[in-house]
């Protein structure tokens, strides 16, 4: 359902031993000049566009219109060229764009939309993994299957329901929608992690007289912190970067950065001083979170559903 639905992946590999290392080195015959060239070309294609827009976001408006961003290096050598934060200042605070308001909206949308579905999914995943009730397997397969429902198919009736109850245009429908849409993948992922916990641990707690609620909080939850982190990053990136749900369910007072920046791209498509700064304002937070928690993200991608 999200942009990067993690799927089956091979198991994470233990670090190679000395013997394996030798075999690996032997395998590395592909390291030819050609291979290096391919690597460099791909690496450049994957970074230069971002770099170009980043440089642009610090250039004066007039310069951006008159010359390409690559000319700044020559100018800098000649002692010319000015960099400033003026574009960011204008994008964030000027009356016409005021991205700071939309930044607040992004934040207000994202926090509950990450916290709520994870909590509900954790409880459900526990129920599916450790409570033995009739029809459990069929229900779990049904939840798993719901992953294939494209959110587009739910939008019109949901919006109608929100209008009927009078909550449309506020944050509530956005929080609700994101929470509901996240559940199938969240339950599936967390259930997989949860089944990896040794049965003996849970049984020992049960013998000691602990009820399900106590087991959930004192035995399971502490062990699941990495899994929770992994899914939290998925969900955070998905919600912060989402355009469709926010656009359909929201109103002018609730639009997040993505909606506003996409709107600017349409209405002021040539104003690159605003667009470049705006794009980086919207990119910055997910980039920081992603870099800081990359380890968990990769683990989530790889281990997500190995034994599904």
């Amino acid at each position: 359902m999200s942009t990067t639905t993690p799927a089956v992946a091979p198991k994470a590999v233990p670090p190679p031993s000395g013997l394996q290392e030798r075999a690996r080195k032997a395998k590395k015959k592909l390291t030819s000049p050609w291979a290096s060239m391919i690597a460099v070309v791909i690496a450049l294609a994957w970074t230069v566009p971002t770099f170009g827009l980043l440089v642009t976001s610090f250039r004066p408006e007039l310069d951006i219109r008159q010359s390409g961003w690559w000319t700044v290096f020559g100018d800098a050598l000649a002692g010319e060229g000015v960099f400033s934060l003026r574009n960011y200042e204008a994008a964030l605070f000027s009356r016409s764009t005021s991205l700071i308001d939309f930044f607040v909206n992004s934040f207000v949308i994202t926090l509950p939309a990450v916290f709520i579905p994870i909590t509900i999914a954790l409880l459900a995943a526990y129920g599916f993994a450790w409570i033995d009730f009739k029809g459990r397997d069929i229900l779990f397969v049904a939840v798993f299957a719901l992953q294939i429902v494209p959110i587009q198919i739910t939008l019109i009736p949901l919006l109608r329901a929100y209008v009927d109850t009078g909550i449309n245009g506020t944050f509530w429908p956005i929080w609700l929608s994101h929470s509901m849409f996240a559940l199938p993948l969240a339950i599936f992922l967390l259930h997989n992690f949860m089944r990896d916990i040794p049965k003996s641990l849970v049984e020992a707690a049960r013998v000691d007289g602990a009820g399900h609620v106590k087991i959930f909080f004192q035995v399971i939850l502490p062990l699941l912190v990495p899994a929770i982190a992994a899914f939290a990053i998925f969900q955070f990136l998905w919600v912060w970067n989402d355009l469709l749900v926010a656009l359909v369910m929201g109103g002018t007072d609730t639009f997040p950065l993505t909606v506003r920046v996409a709107e600017l791209a349409g209405s002021r498509g040539g104003d690159w001083h605003v667009l470049s700064a705006g794009a980086f304002i919207s990119i910055l937070v997910p980039l920081i979170v992603f870099l800081a928690l990359q380890r968990y993200f990769v683990r989530g991608l790889l281990a997500g559903s190995v034994k599904g």
């Binding site: 566009p49 970067n241 993505t258 498509g269 690159w272 794009a279 919207s282 990119i283």
Partner: peptide, 16 residues
């Protein structure tokens, strides 16, 4: 890294 960038942000990067 582009995986962390929204499709909106990436679109603007490439439109430029």
């Amino acid at each position: 890294l582009p995986m962390a960038i929204s499709m909106v942000g990436a679109s603007i990067i490439w439109r430029f």
